[in-house]
Design a protein around this nucleic acid. Structure first.
Lengths: 330, 330
DNA sequence: AGAACACGGGTAATCCATTACTCGGCGCGC
DNA sequence: GCGCGCCGAGTAATGGATTACCCGTGTTCT
């Protein structure tokens, strides 16, 4: 594996010149620079990343820690981050914390060790270990969910308002006993969606009861259990607000298991406009979140913070959009 | 940011001992090792990854380059890889080549520069630049699709047989004009699925015509166009074999657009048992591929090759399973 | 008791790219 | 014509962890 010295020898210059030429520094004679480039190409020279990062004290890499790779919402965020980062020459490494605080911490440690330039994360739990990042001066941005306590850049969706709107929509469609399946306590989006749901019930002068609310992991299996449980009650809900698209899968399975028809028997609004949401029977009414934008904005904020660590932290809130389809209509 | 020297000073030992203690080398007095560990903890010491990797000439990281992060098939592979790699202390960085040979090459370069221990990839096109990996001695494994020309470890699904079985199933269900929507020429899975489809038609003594075959990118948009195109023909197909799950979305949209009922009007078998496949109307008959297993096996092969670069390359082929649901039944 | 050896631990070389510092040579101004 | 300043390029220091090599102490065998 050739090194700068090999290139230098072949081009008949010093290693300093090789480095300057390959990094496009202007203080190199064009002729020499050309000679260096051909020498590098002939040897198939690839700079040694670790050596470069060691010297530079930072890698041109940002880590993106998402809570569920199998959720299209988060992969769309990833696309947004990637596109923006690549434009300015940063690479993105995607880490899947799988809604586990332990895995999240592990990835944060790796990011810290590898001296990445910055981190974008969607915190999986109430207690996050970003303190380490802060104390090391590594830039970071929270996406989708704020960081408890930390005064950081953050990009959110106005999910409480969206949940309120979605619930109001169910009320307007004439559903009587509207339930809610949301994520774990302490995960901000889960709490906000529940709060929005309650806001709407209150505004409609409906009594809100914990009997119609269930929490579980943000995954299909948990939502499946939650939905079965709700349906098994003496007075089951006639509509459900479902807090993310993985959960929507679980809830739909539960309805199918019980032979309950979505829309007709139980109205449904779910978060996230997954590619398949319009294809199920009946097409799902959804709260479409601007996931790609979320990622793109987060990436831009991160880059800005990497460039200037003294910027005051900003909070960006994007809006969501209710797309009414047949599942919320008798 | 503390370094080994800081820890050494605090523990009253040399940097060598610190390194040995923290890396669990047996040649350190347990008492000293303990002192080192407390010192490190008190300082919040995090080893400098680039420095370590520079010295070790390799990072405990494997790169996984997949062709589409938004496709559940590939994210399931990612889970398999992650689980296996983490068990032995490797980190996984996920790279999304987005079915683009250029992005794939870019990520390969990054992987090479960062001196990752190994690479697992699903090649996006017929010409892949793994030659660089080979010449640098970096371990790699192909997953889902073989590497043209390269004699590497590879983990595949017997996708031709699966396509044959799926098509035979459509024949057996009484469909007459069976079409096929597959991926780009040169992508092995796309070609194999088409070949399997033709195998089955031949076995059933059906005439196979290019009028019923369309190729597009492995994405929803392309499949949508392809399906509309097929349906617009004077003699449209009465059944379709669809080569992956992103495409299934596009095809279902097209059917919806045209008011054609899946199953009744047009039988459907698609590849990949996505979480939502059983939830659409009608539930999709699918070829379920062992995606998680694919990833897990690939990771194990990669680790074996990292440990011993002289092993002869192996090819592993896993079977797929046809799950008959309502979409292939009038 | 003396010698050989095992073992724990320290010193310093090493990995490779970047960059501060330095130096020679050339051009321009007085 | 002389000197100052600038430009291009080289020398060597730097970053932090690992590890080859070496040394001193304590053990064991003869």
């Amino acid at each position: 594996m050739p090194t700068v010295s090999d290139v230098a020898a072949r081009a008949g210059v010093s290693t300093a010149t090789v480095s300057r030429a390959l990094n496009g520094k202007p203080t190199v004679d064009p002729g020499l620079a050309e000679r260096v480039r051909t020498a590098a190409a002939e040897l198939g020279y690839q700079p040694n990343g670790p050596a470069r990062n060691l010297r530079r004290q930072e890698a041109a890499v940002v880590a993106l820690i998402i809570s569920d790779v199998e959720n299209p919402f988060f992969t769309a965020i990833a696309r947004g981050v990637e596109d923006v980062a690549h434009e300015v020459g940063y690479s993105v490494v995607l880490c899947n914390s799988d809604e586990s605080v332990a895995k999240e911490r592990r990835y944060l440690d790796v990011a810290l060790q590898e001296r990445v330039a910055g981190v974008i994360l969607s915190p999986s739990g109430p207690e996050s270990s970003v303190a380490k990042l802060a104390s090391r001066g590594t830039a970071y941005v929270a996406v989708d969910r704020p960081l408890p306590g930390a005064d950081s850049d953050v990009v959110l969706v106005d999910t409480r308002a969206a949940a309120r709107e979605a619930t109001a929509h169910l009320v307007a469609q004439g559903y009587e006993r509207i339930g809610c399946v949301t994520g774990p306590a302490g995960v901000r989006t889960a709490d906000d969606r529940l709060a929005g749901y309650r806001d709407a019930l209150k505004a409609a002068r409906r009594r809100s009861t914990t009997k119609l609310v269930r929490r579980s992991e943000y995954k299909a299996a948990g939502a499946h259990r939650a939905a079965l449980d709700l349906l098994a009650q003496p007075e089951p809900p006639d509509a459900l607000l479902v807090a993310n698209n993985a959960m929507a899968v679980g809830v739909l399975q539960a309805l199918q298991d019980r032979g309950v028809r979505a829309g007709r028997d139980v109205g449904l609004v779910t978060f996230d406009d997954a590619p398949w949401a319009a294809l199920v029977d009946p097409p799902l009414t959804v709260v479409a979140q601007p996931a790609y934008e979320l990622g793109a904005v987060a990436a831009r904020l991160l880059l800005a913070r990497i460039a200037d660590s003294t910027r005051p932290p900003t909070a960006t809130t994007l809006g969501a959009r209710l797309i009414a389809r047949a599942s919320s209509h008798r």
